[in-house]
């Protein structure tokens, strides 16, 4: 066990965990931030996507010891009042079915728009291809990202 000071959603939090613990489980089990989801544990489905210094990363494969002073954003910290341009677009297009993968989808999309505010269809496909949606809401996800991009 070791103590880590983590900057999460603008707040510094201390946890005492095995240094190899993926940040996903630190968020979920130790900090009650359960919006970030477990899907595969091998960075193959995107359900656990968070931002590390504004870049989309798969939290299931990132040990807490590797975070250092990096700044983490989770779905809970994406906006104050569910008013991130992507969250609004997700509402407009009523994207989710079961909803389980959607936090990861939104976090991947948010990192894309930060990097590329006017993404092409191909940019969207490339950026979102790592996020599985078993319900098959891919077309709505793509449309919602385009709407968000327009509203930026």
């Amino acid at each position: 066990m070791a103590k880590f000071q983590l900057k999460i959603n603008g707040k510094t939090q201390t946890v005492d965990v095995d240094p190899n613990t993926p940040i996903l489980w630190v968020l979920r089990d130790h900090l009650n931030l359960v919006g970030t989801k477990y899907g595969c544990g091998i960075a193959a489905c995107g359900a656990c996507t968070i931002h590390l210094n504004g870049v989309a990363v798969r939290s299931c494969s990132l040990p807490v010891s590797s975070i250092g002073t990096g700044s983490i954003t989770t779905i809970e910290g994406l906006s104050q009042n569910a008013d991130h341009v992507l969250q609004k677009a997700w509402e407009e297009h009523d994207v989710p079915q079961c909803g389980y993968c959607q936090a990861g989808q939104i976090m991947s999309a948010a990192a894309l728009l930060k990097r590329k505010p006017k993404p092409s269809d191909k940019d969207i496909e490339d950026a979102m291809n790592g996020n599985l949606c078993r319900c098959g809401t891919y077309l709505r996800i793509k449309e919602a990202i385009k709407t968000a991009s327009k509203n930026l």
Binding site: V34, T36, Y38, A82, D94, G99, Q102, A103, I106
Partner: peptide
């Protein structure tokens, strides 16, 4: 008449909704 998913806001803000989120 189309109505939005009643859990929509909870889903897009990462609220605990699923069995796996329970504690």
């Amino acid at each position: 008449k189309s109505k939005k998913n009643v859990d929509l806001k909870n889903i897009i803000t990462g609220k605990p909704l699923f069995g796996i989120d329970h504690k």
